[in-house]
Design a protein around this nucleic acid. Structure first.
Lengths: 225, 225
DNA sequence: ATCCTGTGTTAAATAGTGTTAACGAGGCAA
DNA sequence: TTGCCTCGTTAACACTATTTAACACAGGAT
């Protein structure tokens, strides 16, 4: 359920909009002037801000400026009786994302709010779920590697090594770095051990030809996706 | 310079908008009906589509539907005399990104176009597909070189060297520069090593006589396509 | 022409890697 | 304890990438 911060100084209009939004499944925070709105914004971190432009204490444009200083991502939608093109331009320049002139229909407001929310990039950039390695799914903490229906359990060393390859995917992962991290030192024999694990990971990953672990002689390995 | 595909059936309005956009630094492709617009879209892959809704042959909504089927990312901005809320809703539901009612000011249109473009996430972060070297396809990260059906795997050094030759294609790639980049220094023996790799790349590329690695005595090599 | 340097090419030498299998330590259950 | 299992290591052998060496030739300068 997305949260909308609504800032509007006309009580009657504010109430109507709030009710309409709530009836469509939005959680609505309401403020009736810019200052109260800013305070609420800081407390609630809403998913989108819908603000009137002409308001007492702190007008919508100044409010937007302040919000942008603190948060570059949250969409801001202006709601206003003004219809001067210059105002619209100013609204966008201050970091607004849309501008709706009064009178407007609730349907249009809602659809524009949805349009803004839908473009929001993956809000949770790292839900630390399984990692995608080609067509494989790799769950590092669980040490599981899935290819479609079949799942296999990796040993600890295999998982740690694959994780490091993944973190450096498409770049070279240096032998010495891994050896010191996982083995503690980079002696000759440990180096051979690493080779053995590379072989094992290659066999695990053989079902997707897109995925390859290529050797960079004398330096290390590269995981290619 | 962003490319705008403008589709508008009123010639006078279309012309005005086109000129205004061009004067603001946009490249404009213009079509006066939906079918022509769709065709132009396929040819030009514009950065944004600005389309009238009521048009002969193929209306703006149907056009948007078709475009979305082929490209989920490009922003679509509707431009229309209709002002029924239901239309606005329909426009967004079909995958439109903004909806501007006539009459509108050019400033507002431009600012809304910019708002759409600016939110475009680095659309193609790195589609870095295979590079074309004559009739060969060279996939640098995968170190693969394909000639028609047959594919061969290059060693790391071969791939790195070929990449540098490609980046400087039809220009001289200096011996010293490559030696310092790939070998770390430019001693005599490493120089001979480089010669050996040039020989091997020549053999790899021998099937297309168009492609040649020519020597520039005392300086370096040139990859000719 | 003659010399000298830079390059083309091939082959041998070396060091780094691929792969498989055997081994040994530790865990766990009977 | 014993037996069995798993994981990680070590060993052995095959193979590959890169370097080094060797010889041949091309181009420019004296």
């Amino acid at each position: 359920m997305p949260t909308v911060l609504l800032i509007e100084d006309e009580p009657s209009l504010g109430l109507i909009v709030k009710d309409s939004l709530e009836s469509r499944g939005f959680a609505v925070q309401f403020a009736s002037d810019g200052e109260a709105g800013l305070q609420l914004f800081r407390q609630q971190c809403p998913d989108i801000v819908v603000a009137d432009v002409m308001m007492p204490k702190l007008d919508g444009f100044s409010l937007a400026e302040q919000i942008r200083r603190e948060n570059a991502a949250v969409p801001i939608l202006f709601l206003t009786a003004r219809s001067q093109p210059a105002d619209v331009v100013r609204g966008f320049e201050l970091g607004g994302n849309d501008y709706l002139k009064k009178p407007f229909s609730m349907d249009e407001l809602i659809v524009r709010i949805k349009a803004q929310l839908s473009r929001q990039p993956a809000a949770a950039p790292a839900p630390v779920g399984p990692l995608a390695i080609g067509r494989y799914q790799f769950d590092h903490p669980k040490q599981k590697l899935r290819f479609g229906a079949q799942e296999e359990t990796l040993t600890n060393r295999e998982a740690e090594l694959l994780k490091r390859l993944y973190d450096q995917r498409n770049q070279v992962l240096e032998r010495n770095a891994v050896l010191k991290e996982l083995w503690g030192d980079d002696s000759f024999f440990n180096g051979r051990s690493l080779d053995v694990f590379i072989t094992r990971l290659r066999r695990c990953l053989k079902d997707d030809p897109q995925v390859q672990i290529v050797n960079v002689r004398g330096i290390g390995y590269k995981l290619i996706l």
